[in-house]
Amino acid sequence: MDPAYSVILFTSASGAGYGLIAWLAFTRLSGFWQLSPLAAGITCLVALALITTGLLSSTFHLGHPERAWRAMSQWRSSWLSREGIFAILTYPAALIFTAGWFWSIIPASIMNAAAAATLLLSVITVISTGMIYASLTTIPRWNNAWVVPVYVALAIASGGLLFSIALAVSGAANQPTMVLMMAVLLVSWAVKWAYWRYIDRQSPASTTATATGLGHLGQVSQLEAPHTSENYLLKEMGFEVARKHATKLRRMALNFGLLLPGILLVLAGVSNGLVQLALLALALCFGLGGVVIERWLFFAEARHAVTLFYGRSL
């Protein structure tokens, strides 16, 4: 599949944004960390800004952005439609519970209810994003049980790296917290590793023989393509990345996404003040870089059933 930059930006930015707002809502509900109202307010705005960036970037890749509102209408059957609805619903919930930090007129019960709703909606939104891909039977590398966990785990992990900065600003980025963030990072990349292991071993049922139904005549190969230059189908769905590059990029994603931020989190755990903040900022940059590489590969490695008609394999 064509790794369109708009979609890569959308899923990584909005994933991190929903992860961040989920951490903030969790903090509000659990009281694990004490955040200053200012830190909470800025955290909420950063999260919503990331989500908005993602949504806008996905809107710009549409043929008719001005009709984007129509995408909310088919929630009965379409995961894309559901994603849009949940994405929008998260905004008011997030704003209400964050406002509670500033205005004491908002009763704690409402604030907590809004925080719980935000937590739930942000996770459901990311699940919906994953389901858009996981529900496509045409792409075996997406149509499996690992895709949704990967999206959720990486959203929580990249949101966690952002949240660590908010904690550091509030002086709450203590050692156990850094260990927790590292554990979250480790688990999420373990899920991604399991996904890679899975797609490397799967053997899809569809072949050029089943696509054309000519298998009973022997080996089927394409003798002549229907067109002499590339068409939409091949540009959009025929993108392929060489296996050796994919292996290299997977290693890069793990180094940027897990190894470097992991080391920096350890160092941040034993430092404080501006040094800690700088270390966490660096961890965030590497971590997001890792997710972007991972997301690029998610598209580039995916093979679409239509390419079978062009004599390729899944």
């Binding site: 129509r70 995408a71 939409y232 959009e236 769905m237 239509v306």
Partner: peptide
Amino acid sequence: CIGCKLCSWACPYG
């Protein structure tokens, strides 16, 4: 149609 192209991804027959 908003041109999101998702339908073309969902079609195995191109």
